[in-house]
Simulated scan of single mutants.
Amino acid sequence: MSRFSRRADRVAVERAELAGEASAEAAATLALDEPPIAAGADLTAAAFFDVDNTMMVGASIFHYARGLAARKYFTSSDLLKFASRQLRFRLRGAENLAVVGTARQEALSFVAGRSVDEIIRLGEEIYDETMADKIYPGTRAMAQRHLDAGQRVWLVTATPVELAQLIAQRLGLTGALGTVAESVDGIYTGALVGEMLHGRAKAAAVRAMAAREGLDLRRCTAYSDSINDLPMLSAVGTAVAVNPDSELRDVARQRGWQIRDFRTSRKPAVRIGVPSVLGVGAVGGAVLAGAAVRRRFRG
């Protein structure tokens, strides 16, 4: 590995850690109202669920973007452009950092100066219109079993933290870890905190939440459909592959992980929402939808 590659990898790790810490802090800031701790609650175990194609059919950010397009926040051609770029990243098997930077800049220019409250309000409307009927009953039932056992349940997703918290609230879960973008005085600055919550950043967010909540990661469970979430799945004691892609299915079989499939079709191409193949290139799509946290973070 060249000196440049080592430096780039080190920077990527640092940004992932920053994104994870920011996500855990945002989750605490936006914490949902929880009932008093019940007798017999299991305080050192928890469950972490990916959202796209794990808890929800398709990509939540794409459903949200469609809602924004319907409200003339941007055009359908813009939506297709983002979807095409993200799919291209996945098919290449590697991310073009220059293009990623361009995608991020395009999205940041869109959200800069917009109100956090406005995006939250739109998120509530769009969830009820286009997302509520896309929750997998089987995955929702698994989350409920953790709740019934006295454990807390968090969503962990590249989706903006505000939207992720809304989904968690609608499902009756503890909360959510998501991508965080900076806001000052309730207005987007146009800057991400760290990086999109993806890959290593998800694992960092889970570790940060475990440290905050006193969880024993060996007693925690993680659920995902994607090989991109291997760092998160490997960070806990129990991993479950839900509606897995072919790479994750192979790893799950090798490691003896449970595999659950709630899809009516086994063909990945028919999954709703092409951008569910999120790679790092989806930073633009995530920020485009308006990730923000109510307080100011410095990245």
Results as ranks from 00 to 15, higher is better:
residue 4 F to E: 15
residue 4 F to M: 05
residue 5 S to Y: 08
residue 6 R to M: 04
residue 13 V to F: 03
residue 13 V to P: 04
residue 15 R to S: 05
residue 18 L to E: 13
residue 23 S to M: 09
residue 24 A to H: 08
residue 24 A to I: 13
residue 27 A to H: 09
residue 29 T to F: 04
residue 30 L to R: 09
residue 36 P to L: 11
residue 39 A to M: 12
residue 49 F to G: 02
residue 55 M to G: 06
residue 56 M to N: 01
residue 56 M to C: 07
residue 59 A to C: 15
residue 61 I to R: 02
residue 64 Y to H: 10
residue 70 A to T: 09
residue 70 A to Q: 11
residue 73 Y to W: 14
residue 80 L to E: 13
residue 81 K to A: 15
residue 82 F to M: 10
residue 85 R to Q: 11
residue 87 L to N: 13
residue 89 F to I: 10
residue 90 R to I: 06
residue 91 L to S: 12
residue 93 G to V: 08
residue 103 A to K: 04
residue 107 A to Q: 02
residue 117 D to F: 05
residue 117 D to I: 01
residue 125 E to M: 10
residue 133 D to G: 01
residue 135 I to P: 00
residue 136 Y to I: 00
residue 137 P to S: 09
residue 137 P to D: 08
residue 144 Q to G: 05
residue 150 G to T: 06
residue 153 V to Y: 03
residue 159 T to N: 07
residue 160 P to V: 07
residue 165 Q to W: 10
residue 169 Q to G: 15
residue 170 R to A: 02
residue 171 L to R: 10
residue 175 G to Q: 00
residue 180 V to T: 13
residue 182 E to N: 14
residue 183 S to R: 03
residue 183 S to A: 15
residue 192 L to M: 12
residue 194 G to W: 06
residue 196 M to T: 15
residue 199 G to N: 00
residue 206 V to S: 14
residue 207 R to G: 02
residue 212 R to K: 14
residue 218 R to Q: 15
residue 222 A to T: 01
residue 226 S to Q: 03
residue 232 M to D: 04
residue 235 A to G: 04
residue 238 T to G: 03
residue 240 V to T: 12
residue 242 V to E: 01
residue 250 D to I: 03
residue 251 V to A: 11
residue 252 A to R: 13
residue 254 Q to C: 06
residue 257 W to P: 08
residue 260 R to I: 07
residue 263 R to N: 10
residue 264 T to W: 04
residue 268 P to C: 07
residue 269 A to E: 15
residue 269 A to F: 12
residue 275 P to G: 08
residue 283 V to L: 01
residue 284 G to C: 01
residue 292 A to Y: 14
residue 293 V to K: 05
residue 299 G to Y: 00
